[in-house]
Nucleic acid binder design. Structure first.
Lengths: 214, 214
DNA sequence: GCAAATTAATGATTTATTCAAG
DNA sequence: CTTGAATAAATCATTAATTTGC
């Protein structure tokens, strides 16, 4: 009991990362030889056996599948619901208790242009990202109002965070945001934003895109 | 009441997929404008509001981080155990009470600066996403199991165990790796790399939310 | 097989930190 | 030193998935 004799395999972050990456890359059920290789490789980062690799892939795959199934069923259920009636009316959410300091947001503080290398989105209807990227510098206000369910709810005076309301984020996306609210320009491609120091990858923005609508 | 009294947003599989893909592509804290865009486009797949998008990214990011942290600490704990307690200055889980402002955010400061120039896999690529997308609308059961037939997350490895043992997969890779053991099929090299921590969204069992005092 | 009870996920809120102006 | 914006952590609450007893 002292030194956890030989509990079960506890993947190191590196190992996990690698395994996940492999999974993402398409590996799903490696054969013995592959498992051997993987194991050999991963053993560099910590103790590991072939069965660990084997089980990992098994589990991961199964879980993934489960997740997908779950999503589908949920979605279909939802559809079912929607077909029955119209689910437009959103009852007023719980009352607010604490008026948060909320505040405007897009104060246009730090423009962070982020260059997005590629956004291969294999399936967005009407090439979503393409569009998004395209309008990086133009007024998206007009764009935003285009093509989406305009089931503008009724006046549900939500009590969302102020800033959200103010930004119109509480609407079904049909609301155009006030020009004063959004960053004047530099509406980058869709990647990040933020204050610049935190997470985010402030990669090299030096060379690629300037202000050119390339 | 019949129709979902409208509680909370229930993302459709497509929406989820898109959001996840965006997240993987680097989007973490979209600004108002971006949220608007995203919302507008996602609304094509179902009802959605800006706040949903906002919250989704907040939560996803937070939980991802949490998971990462958990992983790390667990690993280190394990190391402690196995190594028999070596007071190395390993990152320790932040005290639940008074986190000093200075070193606070201990594990949450910059440790997760993950940049991903693109979500390219450092390993061979086989078109992972394509697949996922592909099966979004069709029978997913059976698709995944390319030659395999694992049902739920429980690995019915009763008979796998055998071949595993027989293949010597139960040994620590470093122990031995009979070159003659590997079948000449579909096996190649696995480029490896170890840098940057990348996290994916994998559900894990965590009992974070409990302790409810409600 | 179904329905209540349990449990795990996860959307939505709230609270605390942090950093930058003023 | 104070204030305000922004965001991360913690928490609450509800929904979906499992389990369990009939």
């Amino acid at each position: 009991m002292p030194q956890t004799p030989s509990t079960r395999w506890c993947p190191t972050p590196e190992q996990l990362m690698i395994l996940e990456e492999m999974y993402r890359s398409g590996v799903r059920t490696p054969n013995a030889a592959q498992i051997q290789q993987i194991t050999a490789h991963l053993s560099f980062y910590g103790k590991i056996e072939g069965k660990n690799v084997f089980y990992w892939f098994q589990n991961h795959k199964a879980r993934d599948r489960q997740k997908l199934r779950r999503r589908l069923s949920r979605h279909q259920q939802m559809l079912h619901h929607q077909l029955g009636h119209h689910p437009d009316q959103e009852a007023s959410p719980p009352p607010p208790s604490t008026p948060p300091p909320a505040a405007a947001t897009a104060s246009g503080s730090h423009p962070n242009i982020q260059l997005h290398p590629h956004n291969s989105s294999p399936f967005f209807h009407q090439g979503y990202f393409q569009e998004a990227v395209d309008m990086q510098g133009m007024d998206l206000v007009g764009k935003l109002g285009a093509g989406e369910s305009s089931e503008e709810e009724s006046t549900n005076a939500y009590d969302h965070q102020e800033w959200m309301t103010m930004m119109g984020l509480s609407c079904t996306a049909s609301t155009s945001l006030p020009p004063s609210c959004k960053p004047p320009k530099t509406l980058d491609l869709f990647p990040l934003k933020s204050s610049g120091l935190k997470d985010e990858c402030t990669s090299s923005k030096s060379s690629s895109c300037s202000t050119s609508t390339n």
